[in-house]
């Protein structure tokens, strides 16, 4: 066990001498996907309930597709599926993009979390009290100013509890990355297992790492909720 830790602590935490692996890769995957997903979700959540149907239906189709199918299939499609199309391989920009396993993985993860975040934010927007919006309108807020200064901040705050679930879910989903050859914590655990045959210890170490990250995230979100949801009196 001690030898296992001595040999594998570096790959588990940040690198195997070659590329980013283990904890560092997992954190990078999680934060990058969440970041891109959130940026994607901000405009989409507004469009989702827009009165204009040419805005509404593409967004609803997008969330329907990405929330109705498993992330594993989405990853497989983006990693093996798309690159198997000759047209993709021939186009230089697309080829360079989809050739890299990390790009495919981040794309799949970002789109998936984007779909879920869109729905979460859209739900929070719908839950906003009508009175606040009317009051804002009467004060002269209109169009995108209304959204940027009033609706989106409020929606972001209200969705904090549900978004914390999404963040944890994304963290757990990064374990699928190894199927696209991206070396995250689980891949290093499998390597350690294959080399030393100490199954429980290798996977146990990985489980411990994930538990620590999860606790840290949950703690952070509790602090965030205490700060930003105080007005809703979410008793903690």
């Amino acid at each position: 066990m001690i030898e296992l830790i001595q040999t594998y602590w570096r790959p588990f935490i940040y690198s195997d001498g070659d590329q980013l692996t283990g904890l560092a890769m997992t954190l990078w995957l999680t934060s990058a996907s969440l970041c891109f997903g959130l940026i994607l979700a901000l405009p989409l959540s507004i469009a989702r309930d827009s009165p204009r149907c040419w805005l509404r239906w593409p967004v609803r189709t997008f969330t329907y597709l990405f929330r109705g199918t498993p992330l594993y299939i989405q990853l497989l499609i983006f990693y093996t599926g798309i690159y198997s199309i000759a047209a993709v391989r021939e186009q230089p920009v697309l080829d360079a993009f989809f050739r890299e396993a990390l790009n495919c993985t981040l794309l799949a993860f970002a789109l998936n979390t984007g779909a879920y975040t869109t729905e979460i934010l859209a739900g929070a927007i719908r839950a906003m009290p009508r009175g606040e919006i009317e009051a804002a309108r009467s004060l002269g807020f209109d169009g995108w100013k209304l959204y940027v200064h009033l609706i989106l901040p409020s929606a972001l705050r209200r969705s904090l509890p549900y978004y914390s679930n999404e963040v944890i879910f994304m963290l757990h989903s990064t374990t699928l990355a190894f199927t696209a050859t991206v070396p995250d914590i689980l891949k290093v655990a499998r390597d350690a297992n294959a080399a030393t045959f100490l199954t429980f210890q290798s996977f146990g170490l990985a489980a411990l790492l994930y538990l620590c990250i999860t606790f840290a995230l949950v703690g952070l979100f509790r602090l965030a909720e205490r700060r930003w949801l105080r007005f809703l009196d979410v008793g903690r």
């Binding site: 757990h172 689980l186 429980f200 996977f203 489980a207 994930y210 999860t214």
Partner: peptide, 13 residues
Amino acid sequence: LVRGVPDLLLMLL
């Protein structure tokens, strides 16, 4: 334990 450890990892364990 279950909510803190990823599904795939638990599955392997």
